[in-house]
Design a protein around this nucleic acid. Structure first.
Lengths: 336, 336
DNA sequence: CTGAAAGCGCTTACAG
DNA sequence: CTGAAAGCGCTTACAG
């Protein structure tokens, strides 16, 4: 079982190795007849290009990285899956990198990451995408990157975002339509752009319907499960108790389930709960969580595409994706 | 910011590139003085060897794969994290591969995986590690592999396993000590070796204490969250109702929480629940789950080591790790 | 549109 | 114990 190389293919097809290379890389201006011959030889010999050789000769690694610093395990897993698939489809490998963007030595961490893995590009997830130290390191290194859901305007940077505001509006319409009038809101940490715009969207949507935003009971969370419990307990101990809670992500919403269970409050009979993201945890609670689906799969796919286009010299861009309401069992009309 | 190559280092240190190569690869028989010079040059120039060049020249990829076909998202995530860290520490990259080992075309799937990614070795997780088609494909290709928690004896194969039986015994001792006498058991799917030995261990441990195994209410699950709900509902509707349930993994245990919530049964007051694995989901339920910790981190580290040793011509081995009882809030004495 | 040459940055034998 | 040569399998300029 010896390895088939580009030379074998060239010989088999009766062309030069350069022609084989052209066909493999989908370069333009290859005569169809030649391409057909090469394709056939590739198929017959079962040829697969050698990653290392391509990387060495081309001076790139065929590695794309995703940078994480996210408190939500389910969101992280979802982004990994999406980015992984997109990379594979494009003939790239995915490398996962973690940093602590709140630490004092972010620059050193970035230095280490950028130095050791020879990446061709990087997807930067929140909240790292809003860290000046992270972006500076990227710029200094000259590594192409794309920001996922950045909380600020970065001139000249490529980004992929979701229309959270519209998603939140839909959630509010859903809850309002069910008859809810007393609301609780669990915010994410201030370091995340999403915390701000999801809160604003929620309060604005209520105001639009004539509700007084001041009556909304708020609590702060960390976008993870356990902070959702604490925030949930706080809100559910208020009088009068809200009949519906919007947790700014699914992990915290799952925490609210735990808080409700502790207090003997039944979902959705006594309390409606909605989250955001539609990540894995949304279907791991009972009843299943009503939430707004962020199209992570499509978003990561777009991010990978932006990164690859950048290589071809094309300008980057800023893409926006729509969120979709996913109504499940955790919401119902309020009792009484 | 030009790239520093082995030639630069050699020149800077006043030695041949071969010597630099020896130092970098920790080859024996390098005089300390020479090594010191090289190390200094490496540090001063900030040299990092080029992955692609090493891979090409050495004829290996520096890629290790993990093969998954597992229904538990939290277990999967845990294995990924552990394997990832172990790979990084060893200077390798981790590639994640998924198959459907129950499908008819397993061989074709494996063929594709083995052909496209040039791996130096593979960690095979359950239940793929018990699929004959998977193992045959690996053998045919001649790719070194190590089995994670295999359910059968594979002559000559390296493996890493955990002592589940002892872990289950500890869980039973814990529950029995709290005063429980009526038990429910949720099995995993028959394709998983763990399903069998965890059940046997559970029933044996009870028998040892004089309990009649026939009184245990059993239900079958799929090692995922939603099957845990169904199995939980089934068990909790029995009369007399068990006061404690052992779900064979944490995901199913979390499902039991949902089932209990539906039926208005409080944990741990009305029902004690224990799982197995101590994966991420164990701390994402409330009260937190009492479980048996499988040392995944250490296990994956050992698996990577076995794979790398294999390269050095060393024989493989079969390692066994101990599980640890992690008592949390989901267990308490039965009421009344 | 196609090809022959050079070279990417390492490691593997092979000398000494 | 150390080094000079050859080569891993591709791609990048450069010709034609």
């Amino acid at each position: 079982m010896k390895k088939v190389t580009i030379t074998d293919v060239a010989r088999h097809a009766g062309v030069s190795i350069k022609s084989v290379s052209r066909v493999i890389n989908d370069e333009p201006s290859v005569r169809p007849a030649l391409k057909a011959k090469v394709d056939q030889a590739v198929a017959e010999l079962g040829y697969r290009p050698n990653f290392a050789a391509r990387a060495l000769a081309a001076g790139r690694s065929f590695f794309l990285g995703v940078l994480f610093d996210n408190p939500s395990a389910s969101y992280t897993l979802q982004v990994i899956n999406g980015a992984y698939a997109a990379c594979r489809a494009a003939g790239y490998q995915l490398v996962i990198e973690n940093i602590d963007a709140a630490a004092r030595d972010v620059s050193a961490q970035m230095e280490d990451i950028l130095h050791s893995s020879r990446l061709d590009g990087m997807i930067v997830t929140p909240p790292a995408c809003d860290s000046e130290a992270v972006l500076t390191a990227l710029e200094t290194k000259g590594l192409p990157y794309v920001l996922l859901a950045p909380g600020h305007e970065e001139p000249g940077a490529s980004s992929v975002a979701s229309n959270d505001a519209a998603g939140v509006f839909e959630l509010v319409r859903h809850l309002w339509g069910l008859g809810h009038r007393r609301f609780g809101l669990i915010n994410g940490p201030a370091t995340h752009g999403a915390s701000h715009w999801r809160r604003e969207a929620f309060l604005n949507a209520l105001a639009e319907r004539g509700a007084d935003p001041a009556t909304v009971v708020m609590a702060d969370g960390e976008f993870n499960f356990s902070s959702g419990i604490g925030a949930g307990l706080h809100i559910l101990r208020q009088t009068p108790r809200p009949t519906a809670i919007f947790a700014q992500n699914d992990d915290m919403a799952a925490g609210v389930f735990a808080a409700a269970a502790q207090l003997g409050i039944k979902i959705p009979d006594d309390l409606s709960v909605v989250g955001f993201d539609d990540s894995w945890i949304a279907k791991s609670v009972w009843p299943e969580l009503t939430t707004s689906r962020q199209p992570i799969w499509e978003m990561t796919e777009a991010a990978v595409q932006l990164l690859l286009n950048r290589r071809k010299g094309e300008k980057g861009g800023n893409q926006m994706f729509e969120c979709t309401l996913v109504a499940r069992g955790s919401t119902a009309p309020p009792r009484g």
